[in-house]
Simulated scan of single mutants.
Amino acid sequence: RYNETDRIFDELLLTRMQAGDRRAGERLAARWYPRLMSTAFRLLRDEEQARTAVQETWAGICKGWQNLRDPSRFAPWAYRILHHKCSDRIRRNQRERTQQGNFAEDQTIAASAENKVTLDQAFSALSEEHRIAATFYFGSGLTVQEISQVTGCPLGTAKSRVFHARRQLKKLLTDDVKEGE
Rank of each mutant, 00 (worst) to 15 (best):
W77A: 01
W77Q: 01
Y79N: 06
Y79K: 00
Y79L: 01
Y79F: 08
R80F: 02
R80I: 01
I81A: 12
I81T: 14
I81M: 05
L82C: 08
L82M: 05
H83M: 07
H83Y: 13
H83E: 12
H83D: 14
H83C: 06
H83K: 02
H83P: 05
H84R: 12
H84M: 10
H84L: 11
H84C: 13
K85N: 12
K85W: 13
K85T: 15
K85L: 10
C86L: 03
C86Q: 03
S87D: 10
S87F: 11
S87E: 14
S87W: 07
D88E: 11
R89L: 14
R89P: 09
I90E: 07
R92D: 09
R92W: 09
R92M: 08
R92C: 06
N93R: 14
Q94E: 15
Q94G: 04
R95Q: 12
R95Y: 08
E96N: 07
E96T: 08
E96P: 00
E96R: 14
E96G: 01
R97K: 10
R97N: 12
R97C: 03
R97W: 04
T98M: 03
T98Q: 10
Q99Y: 05
Q99A: 11
Q99P: 04
Q100L: 09
Q100H: 11
G101Q: 04
G101P: 05
G101E: 06
N102W: 12
N102H: 10
A104W: 00
E105I: 00
E105R: 00
D106A: 01
D106Q: 03
D106S: 02
D106G: 01
Q107H: 09
Q107E: 12
Q107L: 06
Q107K: 07
T108C: 08
T108I: 08
T108M: 09
T108R: 15
T108A: 07
